[in-house]
Design a protein around this nucleic acid. Structure first.
Lengths: 228, 228
DNA sequence: CGAGGTATTGACGGCTCTCAAGTCTGGTGG
DNA sequence: CCACCAGACTTGAGAGCCGTCAATACCTCG
């Protein structure tokens, strides 16, 4: 449930159109959602919703980042996706979440009542189509990610860095919001392998790692070529 | 394009309600689609549509099976999903396919004009919601499959067999429509590993393999326990 | 009966995981 | 400002799993 995390979050002002600056990363105009929600602040690693819980709210990242994940019986965690500013998560066609979600760092999310969205969709065909497209875009992203999971460690890390650079839109400098453990659980590797691979890539001159959360893509062509 | 495969397929009669017997595997009632389509027969390994092609048609499996896949630069193929009788594939929110699709064996599909579906959706809110749910169900399945891809070979094969048994609904006897290569590309393994793992499982007494396409689940509990 | 594709089995090597130390970093308090 | 601490990250050594290459068996169809 949303409110049981009340101690880890605090409501801010009702949504002002301040987040209009945020990119629309899907190529889908989701600004229609902005007036429906309330901004809330989440602490680092705060639970946003849990797998199997009812889908009362839909979220849009204003600042920071979120991760959705599933946990295996043996405790391993697979991160399905990261969500960066401007992106929507927690939208389900059914009435329960099928992933858990947490805030990666300290983050601000626009929180939208699902009922508000659905009642809008009942009259507005555009909104219905929007929800469908968002889900379809999500599907496409996961399918692409499956391709990454069958590759070598070097390829996975290279793909990850290129994906993040692409989505953050900050050119060749990537400021990672997530830990090595998060990256490992996203790519299906261990933190040691992530670390070793980054060191290798740095040795190749493909990247530079000034601090452990900041990565500079020095040679994108080399990263794309990394199919070995 | 659909019609360039004309030599590999042949139209049969316009849809009769014969396929009503087919299961509705998503727990979603998709019988509304049946009257919109035409049945067509596809040869083994026939191309149904290609990645990037316009989404003119939506397909429902009547008999046989289909696979959707993407190909990496180095030629490796990742199968996103298999579709069994009663299941729908090729439905996209955008106007191009983002996977390729092929018939696994000789198959019969119900072929539905996308424009017919969309124009129905324009007036019928139920249909719109149906399309959304189908896409969402697809997303959930792919996310679950990601969990499989990070496990060991034994776990992956065990999960695959349990999934197929579940979906085919034929109890403990699984008649696989697909080759070892298909299974390998679905699970992110090689055919040799698939073969070796099946032999191991047979040695454990977890399964029996009377013919290479027929597998009997002797000890489901052992398969579920296989987390090593 | 022969041929080609499909599946199985074996030997070996490499990649990634595991376990175990070290090192760095950011935050806290003196 | 500095010392300290806890968590995050890096690095190393060894083992195990799976991929690769190669040979053999099987099965279907001509």
């Amino acid at each position: 449930m949303l409110m049981q995390n009340a101690r880890t979050l605090s409501a801010t002002h009702p949504a002002k159109p301040l987040d209009r600056w945020a990119p629309e990363p899907h190529g889908i105009d989701i600004s229609a959602l902005d007036t429906l929600g309330v901004r809330m602040s989440y602490a680092r690693n705060a639970e946003i919703f849990g797998e199997g819980e009812p889908t009362h709210y839909v979220f849009k990242v204003v600042a920071g980042a979120a991760r959705t994940y599933k946990v295996l019986d043996d405790g391993r965690r697979q991160i399905s996706a990261f969500y960066l500013p401007g992106e929507v998560f927690g939208l389900e066609a059914t009435d329960t979440h099928h992933c858990s979600a947490e805030s990666v760092g300290r983050s601000i999310f626009l929180v939208i009542k699902r009922t508000a969205l659905l009642s809008l969709a009942r009259t507005d065909h555009q909104t219905t189509h929007l929800m469908w497209r968002l889900t379809a875009h999500e599907l496409e992203r996961v399918q692409t990610h499956m391709l990454v999971l069958i590759r070598s460690a070097q390829e996975r890390v290279a793909c990850f860095l290129l994906e993040m650079a692409e989505r953050m839109g900050t050119g060749d400098v990537v400021e990672l919001p997530m830990s090595r453990q998060d990256i490992a659980d996203y790519l299906g590797l261990t933190i040691e392998t992530i670390s070793r691979t980054l060191t290798q890539l740095e040795g190749n001159g493909a990247i530079a790692v000034p601090t452990c959360r900041r990565i500079v893509l020095c040679d994108r062509a080399a990263l794309k070529r990394l199919h070995a």
